[in-house]
Computed example of a mutant assay.
Amino acid sequence: MITVHLRYEIDPAKLAEFTDYGQRWIRLVDKLGGTHHGYFMPSEGDSDEAFALFTFPSFAEYEKYRAAAAVDPECVEAVRFANETQCIRRYERRFLSPVFE
């Protein structure tokens, strides 16, 4: 199992746009074989930082998702929306292996 951790630097004036973007990707990750664990938005503290977590059964399945997302019309539209609204300033992606009891 592989968990993708995304850290976003977002424009705090565009929280509505970033929320829209995140809601799109929750559904799209699930549609393309992953399990999305949600977006975590600023509350207290930093107002320009958000996070997302989603899991795939393996890194190979994640790579299949990436290939499918590159050509899926809804995914392409979600990326276009983020670029057009400039709600995301930058992001970092990390790959983690979860530990359970």
Rank of each mutant, 00 (worst) to 15 (best):
Y91V: 07
M1Y: 12
D46Q: 06
G22C: 06
A70D: 01
V99Y: 12
A60N: 03
R27D: 15
E17H: 09
T19P: 13
G38Q: 07
E74N: 01
A67Y: 01
P42A: 00
P57K: 03
A69G: 06
G34K: 01
G22Q: 08
Y8F: 15
F18Q: 03
T35D: 14
S47I: 01
F18V: 04
L53A: 05
D48Q: 05
F81I: 04
S97P: 01
R66V: 10
Q86K: 13
K31F: 11
F40N: 00
A67I: 04
E49I: 15
A50Y: 03
Y62V: 03
T35Y: 13
F59I: 13
K64H: 03
L15W: 04
R90P: 08
I26N: 14
Q86C: 04
L32E: 11
Q23E: 15
F81L: 11
S47V: 01
F51N: 06
V76Q: 10
R90N: 13
P12M: 05
D72R: 03
M41L: 14
Y91I: 07
V76I: 10
K14N: 08
D20M: 14
Q86E: 14
G33W: 10
V99K: 08
F18D: 04
N83V: 08
V76P: 05
P57I: 01
E74Q: 05
E61Q: 00
F59T: 10
K14G: 05
V4G: 07
I2M: 13
L28I: 12
C75D: 09
T19G: 11
D11A: 13
W25C: 10
M41W: 07
A82E: 03
Y39D: 11
E49Y: 04
V76M: 09
V99H: 11
D30M: 15
K31Y: 09
Y65A: 05
G33R: 08
D11W: 09
